[in-house]
Design a protein around this nucleic acid. Structure first.
Lengths: 143, 143
DNA sequence: TATTTATCCCCCACTTTTCCCCACAGTATA
DNA sequence: TATACTGTGGGGAAAAGTGGGGGATAAATA
């Protein structure tokens, strides 16, 4: 399971180090793709394939299905770690997530997310205040 | 599976390089045809034949079925890679997709799509804002 | 039929990008 | 203090993408 928050730098070649404690979970081969809030998702292969299977069950004749599949699949790249434990982020994703140098890697259970540090701070502070309201409607019963 | 986003140029002769990592999947012979959002779809033969079978199951007495089948089938061309890994896009498709020079090739799971770069950026930025909403309604349950 | 024109491929050469390897610095651990 | 591990930076070889020239084939015209 992915938890925690790590601050790493992305270099000029678009490489960023994956926190060492997660390299074992991810293994040598995994997937990164566009995430919804202008961040990057990092999925183990199994998890990614599961989502793809769901997406492929949607017909391409539906507009929203096309749009989301395009969004999700076009951003995806099969990744292998280099010997230093880094991944190479494709430039479209760097642009999408607006990564400059300082990045944040956060664990969110079934995936990692890579954020630009400023964007992450902004997002977190923007919803810290509302968190009470957000939590309010998540569940109807005791969890 | 086709994933990722690649920026290639189409030259004056109408040739564009297929990303090298997908040449193996496509093999030597495949199909390109008109796509729905003024882009070009690239299908392996098997996938294309499967869709054709589905379309043929629609009655030609239905107006929409006739229109879509005409749209999809008339744009189709059997393609072979040249020795440099490029395809020759027929001029009607170049016109249809409004390809000038800079193009984007995106993988969307079962196919590749070829877009004019400007058109692609416009499309993606137009639905980036809605992507959260689109995702919201795609599935009702955990996927 | 002969000649011209156009189109399509293949080949070669150049440029750019990507990937792999090595090296260094900082931190934690023994 | 010595050792291992993690994160960071850069150099060089190999691969991928790009552009143009030329020859073969086919269509068009005289």
């Amino acid at each position: 399971m992915f938890i925690g928050e790590f601050h790493h730098n992305i270099d000029d070649k678009g490489r960023i180090a994956i926190p060492s404690k997660y390299r074992d979970i991810l293994g040598n081969s995994f997937v990164i793709t566009r995430g919804i809030e202008h961040c990057i998702y990092v999925y183990p292969n199994d998890t990614f394939n599961h989502i793809v299977t769901k997406l492929e069950s949607l017909p391409f004749t539906k507009k929203d299905a096309r749009a989301f599949t395009r969004f999700f699949m076009s951003g995806a790249t099969a990744i292998e770690l280099d010997k230093q434990g880094r991944v190479n982020i494709p430039s479209p994703l760097i642009t999408y997530a607006n990564l400059s140098k300082k990045c944040v890697i956060v664990g969110t259970g079934d995936r990692l997310e890579i954020w630009d540090e400023d964007a992450f701070n902004e997002f977190m502070s923007s919803c810290n205040d509302e968190m009470s309201d957000i939590a309010e409607n998540l569940f109807e019963e005791k969890i």
